[in-house]
Amino acid sequence: MWLFALPALLINICIILVPAVLTFTAAFFIWDGVGTPVWAGLANFQNMIADPVFWSALTNNFIWTVIFLTVPVCLALVMAAALLMAPKARIVVQSIIFLPRIIAVAVTGRIFQGMIFSPATGIVGWLNEHGFSISDPLADPDRSLYAVAAVDIWHWWGFLAVVFLSAMRQISVDQIEAARLDGAGFFALFRHVLLPGIRPTLTLMLILTVIWSFQVFEFIFIVTRGGPAYGSEVLATFAYRHAFFEGDVGQAAAAACVMSLFGLCATAVYLWLQITDDAQTT
């Protein structure tokens, strides 16, 4: 029987586990990826701590986490509740808001660059011609991170709403009806029935948001490459740049370890919540 699990396990170990262990090891070496690695002790970590770009990247990861824990989650919760109230519109609207999620990130990034943010061909340019003076947010180191976050929110929030909606639909109709008969309005219903009803799903999505926020790479790499002037640099683009453009795999590995550490913390919090939850219910 156990042979059945072997192919999947073997591929996974070779592609993920072994290189992951090597990354952890490489963090303690000076290595360009090709030559012989040289033992460096904690030098990679010391260099990283001394690098202001690392700190701004880490800060950006925290900002990203805060944005994604709030904006898309609130939008999605309210939208899911609204769709629950409107069963006729549900199927069509659900598909519409889900659509951005299935479009390739590279394509979405370019569409937003050209059609929204570009001062020449985008909405920003159009607004400029019509009396609103807005500069290209992607060219501004102070705003580029938020501009990219807006793209990712567009890509992500509808999916999240669909997830919350399917969780809300598992709440018994009786419970919702009972609350309504008691005279609960939209917000009372939301606060006292819907929100507690989807708590397990909500907790899981919040934890995953934290994990993913420290891994965020694609949108930033595609839209700004971490620029301008490292304004939107995050740990993942920091690591990628060091590994492939600066030939410093050891430094990249050290940054990857830091990224994973945050994911690990979030996972630990989740497991802890699960355990305390179980303890409460039994």
């Binding site: 592609i15 990826g33 994990i211 740990l235 990628y240 590994a243 492939f244 795999v249 990857a256 990224m259």
Partner: peptide, 20 residues
């Protein structure tokens, strides 16, 4: 283990994997 590999960042295995 499989559950853990879902949440592991690509960055954690990308670099050694590429050079291998």
């Amino acid at each position: 283990y499989f559950m853990a590999t879902i949440t592991v960042p690509v960055q954690l295995y990308l670099y050694p994997l590429y050079f291998i």
